[in-house]
Write a protein that binds this DNA or RNA. Structure first.
Length: 707
DNA sequence: TCAATCCGTATC
DNA sequence: ATACGGATTGAC
């Protein structure tokens, strides 16, 4: 049933009217009478018998004969719901796009259904069998079912089907063929394996894909790597083995690049791009192309992670650290986790790629679930641009031009040299906006409101700092750390930076790329490009210089992932520089002794991820432990926790204040108890919804933000 | 003793 | 939301 109530998260059996016996197939959308009202549901399975010992109702209506919920996705959705302590109905809402009748009619309906629909119309009324509709347990079960096999379908079980083993947890062996080497792989074109040959394990990985095997790899892309082409080659190799591919990227810009690379390699008609941004009709059309087996490859943003590709052979995700991969709707599944679950359930190959590496992907490697694909040191040295740290040295304040642009001399020199050689310069600034926040000019401690501890901001260049939370004006501010009384802009946004740099380099064109307008690419000639992280355009031929400004603002974010996130953003920008020691120059305005800066200088995201994972093990944070966060009004959260039969090892932390006067509690268990934790929370939620306990509690497993 | 009503629970 | 069963209450 399409009802998001925890206590109804199971299948229910219905009789299938004879006239629907043919068309009401597993995976179709149905409408049923449930507790006196009509609700939508998913027909999960057909059976001769039902275990239900009450009277069964008939399916009210078949919404469409299109089997949009394949068995693979039904099983996956159940597994995802279980992992995230959520409801199947919620996951299915994410997995199957809303129906668009006109689009469905465009192409011939799927074989089998529809064609002989009329044939059974004359079948005896009433001889039906149960169908299991969403939300029901098992499905092969007893009950009615009399009548001839065909005209009398068995019970159908509607939405909420049972199966529910929880997968995911890394266990099995992995299998990237580690051969270094050289043989020509997969690719139809001679250049296909050239790119993957930069990585000793690369050709073996492609060969395994082409041979129909399920290798699992975590790939650290070299600076300057044309990752869309590498992804396309992996997809092509998989297609050659007769299997399908699902590849997920974080945003529309990455999707365009991957789309172009695939078109180049496979031509048109072999793949389809699926994202929520398409709008209902085009999204449903792309979805049907996959579910009807018209295309073997689906690429997209996280909306594509459930794409029902036929005979899935490879799941791939690019830049799994990007927080756009975390679904913001219940039960908040992460694309990486969904894809890994899919691979585990369906024995598909895995490619987790990025310039950066997450602690999560590191764990896959450490447990042996996946193998690393990395370049050897000499290749890396040959490809990595020169990266230099520089202090935000106050000396430079004496150089009027540089000071106004907040550019340390090294950055200034690098930019000037690049422009002189007619190469573009990329300047990455952490956040957009106009002077969003301020900090103590002496010790850099973020300036906080003396009344409510909210962040202070400058509304205008001249104005006094104002609290962004309580709107009080902080007139006589004194830093609680060092008693300093002067403030400086903590993060200067892209617009202001563009203005300043434009003045500093007169006559040079300045472009900005940020949330309002994201540039795809810029010409390979002298020009300044000011971009916020994630919006860096690709430059033809690569940038002559990449400046990473205000980086300390990224590092001091109060977030578990601050270091990982800072490094991820820097690597993504630095990767756009002209490769090699003689190529582009990268200057990061940060203390070179900090670990994330070290990792950037050495281009060693794997090392940093290992460090990060070790630290999280020590602190008991994900992915080393499994955490769940419960958010709601205090009483409701307490009640849920009280009723939950948590695994013995569970630790309850909190409460911490949450928005709207709510509060938040965290529950932590060892990874081995992850399934038990999710089950306990779901069960407790079921008790509450059954009793119609008013105040809702939001349950998030592995929440994106912890504290 | 029986029927009307209330409350809690399941919902095929 | 609504329907049902069992418990409770009130009238005969």
């Amino acid at each position: 049933m399409d009802v998001p109530l925890a206590h109804l998260d199971r299948p229910f059996d219905y009789l299938v009217p004879a006239e629907l016996a043919d068309q009401a197939r597993p995976g179709t959308r149905v409408r049923v009478r449930f507790a006196g009202q009509l609700v939508d549901g998913w027909l999960l399975d057909r059976a001769e018998l039902s275990a239900h010992d009450g009277r069964l109702s008939y399916l009210e209506r078949l919404v469409s004969p299109e089997p949009v919920l394949t068995p693979e996705i039904a099983r996956l959705a159940r597994a995802v719901a279980d992992r995230y302590a959520g409801n199947l109905a919620d996951v299915l809402r994410l997995a199957v796009p809303p129906r668009h009748a006109r689009v469905e009619r465009e192409a011939a309906p799927p074989p089998a259904a529809g064609t002989h629909a009329g044939a059974e119309a004359a079948a005896p009324q009433g001889s039906a069998g149960p169908a299991s509709v969403e939300g029901a347990a098992g499905s092969e079960s007893p009950v009615s079912a009399a009548g001839p096999p065909e005209s009398a379908a068995g019970p159908a079980s509607v939405e909420g089907a049972a199966g529910s083993e929880s997968p995911v947890s890394p266990s099995g062996p992995a299998s990237v063929e580690g051969t270094a080497g050289a043989e020509s792989v997969a690719g139809g074109t001679g250049s296909v394996d050239a790119g993957w040959r930069s990585y000793p394990a690369g050709p073996g990985f492609l060969r395994a894909l082409a041979d129909g095997r399920p290798p699992r790899a975590v790939w650290s892309a070299l600076p300057g790597e044309d990752w869309p082409s590498r992804f396309a080659e992996a997809a092509a190799a998989t297609v050659r083995s007769g299997r399908g591919v699902v590849a997920v990227v974080a945003d529309a810009r990455d999707l365009e690049r991957l789309d172009a690379a695939l078109t180049g390699l496979l031509g048109t008609g072999r793949h389809v791009a699926l994202s929520a941004a398409l709008g209902p009709a085009r999204r449903y059309r792309a979805f049907l192309a996959a579910s009807r087996g018209r295309v073997p490859v689906v690429i997209g943003t996280r909306a594509a992670m459930f794409a029902p590709v036929v005979d899935l052979g490879l799941v791939a995700i690019w830049d799994d650290g990007d927080d756009l991969h975390a679904e913001p709707r219940a039960p908040y599944p992460h694309a990486r986790e969904v894809l890994l679950t899919r691979a585990q359930l369906g024995d598909a190959a895995v490619l987790v790629g990025g310039y950066a590496r997450t602690a999560e992907s590191r764990l896959l490697v450490e447990t042996g679930w996946a193998k690393e694909i990395v370049a050897d040191r000499s290749t890396l040295r040959a490809r990595t641009p020169r990266i230099t740290p520089t202090g935000d040295d106050p000396q430079l304040a004496r150089d009027p031009a540089a000071a106004s642009a907040r550019l340390p001399s090294l950055a200034w020199d690098a930019a000037r040299a690049a422009l002189k050689s007619d190469a573009p310069v990329l300047v990455q600034v952490p956040r957009r906006g106009y002077l969003p926040a301020v900090a103590c000019a002496e010790c850099r401690a973020p300036a906080r409101c003396p009344h409510c501890s909210g962040p202070l901001a400058l509304r205008s260049a001249s104005g006094t700092p104002t609290c962004r939370w309580c709107a009080r004006v902080a007139a006589g501010y004194a830093c609680p750390q060092c008693a300093g009384r002067r403030l400086r802009a903590a993060v200067v946004g892209a617009r202001r930076t563009a203005e300043e740099l434009g003045r500093a380099f007169p006559g040079v064109p300045v472009r900005t790329s940020g949330r309002e307008e994201v540039l795809r690419s810029v010409p390979g000639e002298a020009g300044l490009v000011i971009a916020t992280p994630g919006a860096e355009p690709v430059a033809e031929g690569g940038y002559g210089a990449v400046l990473l400004l205000d980086s300390w603002a990224l590092l001091t974010r109060a977030d578990l992932r601050a270091g990982e996130e800072a490094l991820r953003r820097w690597l993504a920008a630095a990767a756009l520089a002209r490769p090699g020691p003689a190529g582009g120059r990268v200057v990061v305005v940060a203390d070179g002794s900090l670990a994330p800066v070290q990792a950037l200088l050495r281009w060693d995201p794997g090392w940093f991820a290992g460090r990060e994972l070790a630290e999280r093990r020590e602190l008991g944070f994900p992915p080393a432990a499994r955490m769940a966060s419960l958010t709601g009004v205090a009483a409701a959260v307490a009640e849920l926790l009280d009723e939950a039969r948590l695994p013995p090892a569970a630790e309850v932390l909190g409460p911490v204040p949450a928005p709207d006067g709510q509060e938040r509690m965290l529950v932590r268990v060892p990874r081995s108890r992850a399934a038990a934790l999710a089950a306990a929370l779901h069960e407790a939620a079921a008790l509450r919804t059954a009793r119609k306990a008013g105040q809702p509690v939001r349950i998030q497993v592995d929440p994106q933000d912890i504290f």
